[in-house]
Design a protein around this nucleic acid. Sequence first.
DNA 1: TGAATAGTGTCTATTAGACAATATAAG
DNA 2: CTTATATTGTCTAATAGACACTATTCA
Lengths: 236, 236
Amino acid sequence: MPDKPWRIPKVAVAVDLAVLTVRADQLQILLVERAIAPFRGMLALPGGFIASKEEDLDVAAARELAEETGLDAGQLHLEQMRTYGAPDRDPRGRVLTVCYFAVVPNLPLPTAGGDARAARWTPVDSVLDGDIDMAFDHRTIVADAVERARGKLEYTTLGAAFCATPFTVSELRHVYETVWGHPLDPRNFHRKITGVAGLLVATGERTTRDGGRPAALYRCGPATTMHPPILRGTER
Amino acid sequence: MPDKPWRIPKVAVAVDLAVLTVRADQLQILLVERAIAPFRGMLALPGGFIASKEEDLDVAAARELAEETGLDAGQLHLEQMRTYGAPDRDPRGRVLTVCYFAVVPNLPLPTAGGDARAARWTPVDSVLDGDIDMAFDHRTIVADAVERARGKLEYTTLGAAFCATPFTVSELRHVYETVWGHPLDPRNFHRKITGVAGLLVATGERTTRDGGRPAALYRCGPATTMHPPILRGTER
DNA sequence: TGAATAGTGTCTATTAGACAATATAAG
DNA sequence: CTTATATTGTCTAATAGACACTATTCA
């Protein structure tokens, strides 16, 4: 069974983006309302087909994000998450979608464009609980993205990506509490998170924006992983 | 920019497999010698193009594994690892490859077939150290697979997949030592691994195949993850 | 002043890692 | 008996989680 080029099936390739943030005490995901068929008018992840046979996947992801939501991929870290390729996942025919994952601070409301009629932040619980119907297999993709975020908080510095720089320890804790869905002891969290070498760098500034005693401001340090991890046990 | 089907670029889609095992005190990976161009005669991961526009990715992976190496995917757990899609990664043109990851016990030597001239187990160190040239970007893929295995040993029951059932605690420890590349204290390992609820189930049998005092035999229990994880610290 | 949050300290139960000691096989 | 491996136990330092207490702002 040699590789005969004229026999190799060719399929359409898309990229989709699962962009998460914490807004209004909720883990939210960036969704668009589809302006075109199929699933016209339904909510979907931003994304679309690669622009040409030569376009790199990472480039396509950044382009679609900018086109449909106005977000600049230069300001965030896109990482490949997983590829979804069930033969019947798109009614137009075989479409493989390579899904990307990103986390951003609480940003201004996105602006729709391209194939998207509207772009908005949506609580992931609305999606996972089935309150919102989603196009294609995007509900599954959202679930995978949420689980990835929850897991990566444990052993990476992903949490800081949810915060605008500079941030306070309690702002970072609020991210953990929101993503994991349960409260953490502020004192133990402070001790643990500031004890990880290279994770946080104090700017020397302080802020009272969270109320109460002024809190020290930090920016991200060089560390990207935590050993040992902060496990999401059932603290409290 | 509406979705005009006649403008959507179509690309070739392949699946590749990174199948790991522990043999002769080394972490080894299943490679094939390519029988066809490009990279004819060079070593590569088993894999190939999807057979039709309708073939599911998981099915394609199992089929290619059976065709090229004679292994039955029904006997192992294939999980999707990552998709590689750099525009220039295949000299024939744009080819997207969805890579799968699996771990197997020390199996009989594989039998080549399909587009593979030969199939054999190869120490991953030979690949990672550059002693072996590999086709396409497969050296990168091997590195990613090894890192995935090392990481998943910490918090999942993947290690047991390296062992033929039933197995002893010291056989399982040997897997950890080989994959991580450093020795572990047999007594502490025994205490930790048997202390994880649902991980190991004693068969009641014993064996002396490892020499010395007879060791209890175990099979896998229902647990798939470990909390807390066994961290690959610099023990010893 | 009180309310709110920041940050430090302290205590206890648990765990990791080092390693002693005993158990049971083969030769 | 010697050697090899299995398994249990013990000790100590580090850590996690609970929570008291002090510090510093604003209203």
